[in-house]
Simulated assay, not measured.
Amino acid sequence: MPVPLLDVNAQNLPLQEELRETFDRVLQSGRFIMGEEMEAFESEVAQMVGAKHAISVSSGTDAILLALMALEIGPGDEVLCPSFTFFATAGCIARTGATPVFVDSCPVCFNIDVNDAKRKLSSKTKAIIPVHLFGQSAAMDEVLAFAGENSLRVIEDGAQAIGAKYKGKAVGTLGDFGTYSFFPSKNLGGFGDAGMLVTNDSQLAEKALMLRNHGMQPKYYHKYVGGNFRCDALQAALLRVKLREYHHYTAKRQANAEYYLEHLLRIDGIEQASASDCGCFEQQNAQLKASQAKLVLPVAYEYNEHIWNQFTIRVLDGKREALRQYLIESGIGCDTYYPVPLHQQECFSGLASTGLPICEQLAGEVISIPIYPELTKEQKDEVIEAITDFIAAD
């Protein structure tokens, strides 16, 4: 049977009756922008992640932009961010007039390399945005120590990681701000665009609330030039339905990841990177070459709670496109996150950029396979069989 990369209907349709009842409730209320549904959703998310304040917004992208605006990041400022991530991270920095300064990645967990961030620090650096890529936390102790030593603001991009934890604490709650996305493909996927900004700083929360709604407080009195980042009441209401099921979704994704790891590691030519190799690029490459590895499986660090937004494999020796084509022909959904690092994007061609060898290598190696909660055992076995056959034929 075909195995899609993601099947949103497999998750949403079992909730169809309750979702329709929720729609009718919002319809009858006549309140479609912000309001009680949004406030209830914010309270529930804040409680789930352990944040003092949660501010729902129009998208995960707008959450990042709103955080930057609240921190008064603008022209002349530099913000450190990984190059190996989705465009919104750096795009929002550029939209404020500030300059994104691109940082290399860890080859094991795919997250920001704090040692490289230290090399990119300048007198203009005002903030750092660690991205919790694919559902696993970045090295937040190192990020926060570096930021504290240099008076930098920290915005956690948790678009792919709501509910993930770092040493027992929810990602997004460790820096000045945390941002989440509810794009339909995310672990808590909505029915269009929506996002969330969280913080434990009451003054920052108050400012962000005003900036979310044109810098206005009270009505028609504008203290700041803000934006229209308001959340639709319908999105908030529908997401509340799914939020009640979220711990089940996470547990199933984690079980799917364990199943892949257990079975794929039995195959000659497939290895899992050692967590002790984090940041040791040359050492890891040498070990993989010596072992004649063909595929490298992802790692969940023991102190993290990984929520597996993606299960991302590294395909060595230039065989990524061959595997991608083989999976597609076998009816297996897959995709490349991300084929072009941000520092190589045309829109950032005018920025000075030193070599970022790890993220450039990752961009040529990575491929993600289905990991969504509703995968059946038969579907997972099909994915494993297809990868096994590809390795055997290589």
Rank of each mutant, 00 (worst) to 15 (best):
D104S: 06
L288W: 14
F86H: 14
I93Q: 01
K294H: 09
K219R: 11
P4M: 07
C231D: 05
S202M: 06
P357H: 10
K207H: 07
A67K: 06
P357K: 10
Q217G: 03
L375V: 08
R266C: 03
T99Y: 01
H263C: 00
N111I: 00
A275D: 06
F177P: 05
D193G: 09
V198M: 12
E245F: 04
G172K: 05
A255K: 13
A88E: 13
V3H: 10
P100A: 04
G350C: 13
L295M: 15
S43M: 06
K294Q: 13
L65H: 15
N309W: 06
A363E: 05
T22A: 10
L6R: 15
V26M: 07
N285L: 13
V299M: 03
S349I: 00
K294A: 04
L261S: 08
Y180L: 08
L356I: 06
F87R: 08
M69C: 00
A170C: 14
V103P: 00
E378A: 15
E271M: 11
Y249D: 09
V154M: 06
C347K: 13
L264F: 04
A159C: 14
K207E: 05
A63D: 13
T61L: 09
K118Y: 02
S181W: 11
A208N: 09
G189Y: 11
E37L: 09
A170R: 00
T96K: 06
K377A: 11
L204G: 11
A290G: 13
G215W: 10
S276W: 02
F110D: 00
G279N: 04
I367T: 06
F177Y: 12
A386G: 03
Y220N: 14
I387N: 04
Q361K: 14
T89M: 08
L5A: 12
N304L: 00
E346A: 14
E18Y: 05
